[in-house]
Simulated assay, not measured.
Amino acid sequence: MVIDGIWSYSPDSGYAEGQELTGYTVAATDGTIGHVDRQADHFGMRHLVVDTGVWVFGRSALVPVGVVTGVDTEGRKISLSCTRGEVKAAPRFRTDSETMDAAYLTSVGDYYHRLPPRETTTT
């Protein structure tokens, strides 16, 4: 089941349709989590795969685009509405094949959808 909104950029996020975000720095509300390794849209579930680098060594995170609060093209930075801990606690991303697994994507969407709403700030 696709949860409305969690898989779509909000209109005020600053994202332009078709914009390439690979390489952009990704920041949670309380600090940087990594950079965009790739973006995907399988089953209508748009998401970013974020390489967390040394923060969570050897692990990437899958983030639905509905938690993106700002895209700063000039600064090449994406801001999220969640904390580093919330990203880390999300259903673990293990392999690239999971981006094609509708059940896994649904579990990720359910997790992010249940997070408490926050004041949104843009970059």
Score class of each variant (00 low, 15 high):
30 D>F: 01
95 T>K: 11
99 T>A: 14
72 D>W: 06
53 G>P: 11
39 Q>D: 06
92 R>I: 14
111 Y>E: 06
42 H>W: 07
59 R>H: 11
92 R>H: 14
107 S>I: 10
90 A>D: 03
58 G>S: 12
99 T>F: 08
66 G>D: 10
55 W>I: 11
34 G>Q: 04
100 M>W: 03
59 R>A: 09
50 V>N: 02
53 G>M: 02
94 R>V: 13
66 G>L: 06
55 W>K: 00
90 A>Q: 00
41 D>P: 03
72 D>C: 10
96 D>P: 05
87 V>Q: 05
57 F>W: 07
78 I>H: 04
70 G>C: 06
37 D>W: 14
43 F>M: 05
56 V>T: 09
38 R>K: 13
57 F>P: 12
40 A>K: 13
30 D>P: 05
70 G>P: 03
29 T>E: 14
52 T>G: 02
32 T>Q: 15
93 F>A: 04
56 V>A: 12
70 G>M: 00
73 T>G: 12
85 G>M: 12
53 G>W: 12
35 H>F: 15
47 H>D: 07
89 A>P: 02
48 L>S: 01
90 A>E: 01
62 L>F: 14
92 R>W: 14
110 D>M: 12
49 V>F: 06
87 V>M: 00
54 V>Q: 08
92 R>L: 15
39 Q>G: 00
63 V>P: 02
73 T>E: 14
86 E>Q: 02
83 T>Q: 05
92 R>A: 14
47 H>Q: 10
73 T>P: 04
55 W>P: 01
